[in-house]
Design a protein around this nucleic acid. Structure first.
Lengths: 210, 210
DNA sequence: CATATTTGTCAACGGTGTTGACATCGGCGC
DNA sequence: GCGCCGATGTCAACACCGTTGACAAATATG
């Protein structure tokens, strides 16, 4: 057994990225946190990208367990919300967005579960594939967008939202009547709630198309 | 007048990023393309991030013009497809996903148009905000996910899709019955078509919730 | 015990975004 | 036209970054 294992490295890496954020996360910093030479990491991961993907999968640990069994909708809905929460908690998501396929364990479990539930629900095979991709794109995409702000402290996040609203409000009334008029209604509630709304509407649409 | 203007820089930058891709795009390369010192760019943009946002907005030029007037759905649908196409064509999108607000001209025009159409359609003010965020999250998020593959030549993209499918097919049949069974149906058609499907279902859901 | 493989360390390469000092140029008031 | 001043471009440098190859120590294997 060696001092550094993939497990130890990934755990430490998630810890570090949670503290310094995605942009500031570097192999050198990780080496410091592990009290080891930064390049030792390359004995366990081929590249930083590979490490990031492993981190992403690690943060999804247990995400498919204990989901509601009431209906396919409830199950998929809760799963998507968990995936989002997991990725927002640890801003590793940029790695998932880099276009790599889900070859890791938890990612595969997620795919299998969604396909199974859609099958149970009575979708046709090709409709299953379409619905799967639709749900995943919204979930991952939304998380990617919200990730940078989610890592900020709540007060600063609110300050930024307020700033954006006043940007809209300050526009020319003639050219942007709706933006100015609705400025204070934009970015309503939390990003989580807005995502849940979008997901519910998408599931509505999928259900009627079944 | 100076040799370098924001307009000239942005145009050249979009050209460069189109040739070398997002990852390889650097201030130094841009300086080379402009036949100027790389740091001259900092006389016109505070940071690389600011430049990337300007590039993103530039690639959205004209996206709100000549949209269908048949219905709010048709209009928003076409707009979202155009936004996606514009951002996939120039892989600048990662900058938009970095969480910055839409302070640039074309981004503001998009917001205004969507809000106006939803208003026309008879949505309540708070429902307008929710629907706006839902549509934008799906569009931008989806583009962010598909961006890396979209920049590849078609044949290599197909090769990658095929590789992913065979990854699924090679899984253990007992643990992953649906993934293995449906492997050849995953990633159906083009990414554009899959996005259009998701968007249509979302719009379905929004319409019934009106 | 000897050997071979894995694992950690170190120095270094070629790249990155960004900054500050310096030179140059254009336009403006006198 | 002169002198000035701010805007613009150049240059060297800083502090990082991901990654590689040579070497040493430790560990497993015969």
């Amino acid at each position: 057994m060696s001092r550094l294992t993939p497990e130890i490295i990934v755990t430490a890496a998630i810890d570090v990225i949670g503290q310094v954020g995605f942009e500031q996360f570097s192999v050198r910093r990780l080496g410091e946190a592990l009290d080891a030479d930064p390049t030792a990491i390359y004995r366990h991961f081929r590249s930083k990208d590979e490490l990031l993907r492993a981190m992403g999968d690690h943060s999804l640990e247990g995400v498919v367990e204990g989901l509601p069994t009431t209906s396919w909708r409830d199950c998929i809905r809760e799963l998507c919300i968990r995936i989002r929460a997991a990725n927002l908690a640890k801003p590793v998501l940029a790695s998932l967005v880099r276009g790599a396929p889900p070859r890791h364990r938890n990612e595969l479990l997620i795919t299998e579960l969604i396909l199974a539930k859609l099958h149970e629900a009575g979708f046709e095979p090709s409709a299953i594939a379409d619905a799967y991709h639709a749900v995943i794109e919204l979930t991952i995409g939304s998380a990617a967008i919200d990730s940078p702000l989610a890592s900020l402290p709540a007060e600063e996040r609110d300050r930024i939202y307020a700033e954006w609203r006043s940007d809209y409000a300050a526009l020319d009334r003639r050219s942007f009547p709706h933006s100015t008029g609705m400025a204070r209604l934009l970015y309503p509630g939390t990003a989580d709630r807005r995502f849940a709304f979008a997901l519910d509407r998408l599931l509505d649409g999928l259900e009627t198309a079944r």
